[in-house]
Write a protein that binds this DNA or RNA. Sequence first.
DNA 1: AAGAACGACAACCGCTCCATA
DNA 2: GTATGGAGCGGTTGTCGTTCT
Length: 298
Amino acid sequence: MGRSPCCSKEGLNRGAWTALEDKILTAYIKAHGEGKWRNLPKRAGLKRCGKSCRLRWLNYLRPDIKRGNISNDEEELIVRLHKLLGNRWSLIAGRLPGRTDNEIKNYWNTTLGKKANAQPSPQSKQTSQSLKKQAIESMTNTQSSKPTMAIQVIPTKATRCTKVLLSLQSPPPPPAPQILSSTVTDDPSQASLLDQQQASPDFHCRPEEPHACDDGSDFLNFGPWSEFQPSDGICGDALIDNDCGKNLPIGSGHSLALSDDLFFKDWALNRCLDDNSTLDLESLAHLLDSEEWPEMRH
DNA sequence: AAGAACGACAACCGCTCCATA
DNA sequence: GTATGGAGCGGTTGTCGTTCT
């Protein structure tokens, strides 16, 4: 389907933003909020493409952006997350509050990528597509693998978290445990994750927005489940139902055996963060540092 | 001191996904 | 079911400052 360009490029400024433009954009967004990027330049009186405005805001002007050197902890986290997620910068950035995908991408390309090349990792160059494929392959192979975890399989397809909402007021947690349920509790690090998830019902929530699923289970639904239906040869009854409130077979002995690797990818994909929340860097670090971690990475 | 090479980062581009009419 | 617009993502390019020769 053909698409009109997001904006006419004629008469628009390009290149570096001026201080005045920044000021105008910031003032406009503070007054009217984000969104409607296509119309924003016109309304704000900027001679810029809407996309450009969005990028400028997200990568530079946003008040919660942390600027400055990336700490060693952050660097280590980036490296580890990159091993898990590949070049999915937005997901990685989601785990580093105040950092933007662009910043992390640049940092990787200029610094970490070279280090990684010096210490080649089999996964370091994975693309989203290859990750996805790998995930699917992994899933289709897991039926014969050791059923160590009862994790519902989540497609690694990155789905934005903007509509993943939980109630702040009363999220009666679904009776069934959530994503890391059942058989993973032996590991203290994972238990810690569980605890944090359950103890923090508002993580990655936007209180001002309506809730996608009142029972709080919707945060588990973040992908085209149709891709992973039983017809795909996957143990369907181990999958979470796409409907809110229906859950995975918790503690069931026949739950889908998900590869450990995929489990962590899944975890990483789902741990969307609230912009205002303290990052659970600790929990992630805990996870990454856990004794089982090296084994899980193959 | 001058120019080349390099590094860091901002910005752009094209593609894809999702929501909606 | 389809077309379209809005928005986001990842790859790439451009620019500027710093270091090296």
